[in-house]
Design a protein around this nucleic acid. Structure first.
Lengths: 181, 181
DNA sequence: TCCAGCATGTAACGAGTTACATGATTCG
DNA sequence: CGAATCATGTAACTCGTTACATGCTGGA
């Protein structure tokens, strides 16, 4: 296989919380989930069909207004079993991050390269924005201790992402100040 | 386009340092470069053909032993120009990391989930191994201050990767000890 | 002489993005 | 009534992986 199909499990995981339409799922990828996973509707709809063909989910048609048909998908026990199996199984492969900026840096041979300050500054802004966004998310999604333990995994992920961006920003700042004038 | 073709620039960047065969390039992806980028020979050979058709590289045939033909690729000025353009252009998109473990965590709702200790411990081992490997690399590739400024970008990347893994390990350890007994 | 490694390619497939395509609803 | 958004789908294409396929070289 080219790569393990992880999209199916995200969909199962989300449907395990509540029934959703393909449109709802796509929206989730644009917002909450989008922080750490992305998918377009052109991937979602075919995947829903496959999951239903496999007997992991079913759908019922609801009507909005006069005639707009919505397919509301539900998880069934076989799907819940598949989800549990996936979560419980080991995750032995480390993710290979392919960061284009890092790649460009590899070809910068000296600390006197005139392009360095601009390159580093651009990334600094991008990662500072991201960091601020994550801080905002943390306080809006998990305002109290109680909310943190309610959705523990999500809380951990945000914590981790925050740490990662903080580290990225620190590294960029330090590198910039250490550059020769 | 599905995604910007970055492989072409890595190849140009490597050929900009010295002439190489497709086999050499593939080996580079398994070793040095493999730390932050991967590619199989089935991607490398067709890409070399495309780069040559575009007029960015040329090749000469050398004979090893009696009749084994090697294609040694060289970068030409047009290729160097394309490489420079790519490095100099901005890099405004942040890389979306799709970490399967993080994804699984999202579906863990409570800090009392019995699967958590095992999941976290597995990742801790993986990232500790990676961290050790990176530390090893740093001392072997850059033993002295002088070697650090010779290949400055590569040095920065290793520094950054080290920071990232350190952060990952710290986060896992902290999460593990904070778990309820 | 045999086997690991050198060396180069193609084919089949899955994942993911962008674009094409259509129609209904809701709110100002 | 018009625009934004809801809602669902397909097509074309690129990227990347695994597998298929072939032949040569150098050293034990």
């Amino acid at each position: 296989m080219a790569q393990k199909n992880k999209l199916q499990f995200i969909i199962l995981g989300l449907l395990n919380q509540q029934p959703l339409t393909g449109y709802d799922l796509t929206k989730a990828f644009e917002h909450e989930i989008g922080e750490f996973w992305q998918a377009q509707h052109s991937q979602v709809y075919p995947q829903l069909k496959r999951l239903e063909a496999q007997g992991y989910i079913t759908h019922e048609i609801t009507i909005s207004g006069e005639k707009l048909e919505k397919k509301l998908y539900h998880i069934v026990p076989a799907g819940q079993a598949a989800l549990t199996t996936w979560i419980t199984a080991g995750t032995p492969e480390l993710t290979a991050t392919k960061d284009e900026f890092i790649l460009k840096l590899y070809f910068v041979r000296t600390n006197r390269d005139p392009r360095l300050p601009e390159m580093l500054t651009e990334q600094l802004h991008l990662h500072q924005d991201k960091l601020e966004h994550l801080q905002q998310r943390l306080t809006t999604v998990f305002p109290t201790k109680a909310t943190q333990s309610e959705n523990f995994g999500h809380y951990l992920i945000l914590q981790h992402a925050l740490g990662r961006e903080t580290d990225y920003v620190t590294w960029l700042k330090q590198t910039l100040t250490a550059l020769p004038k």
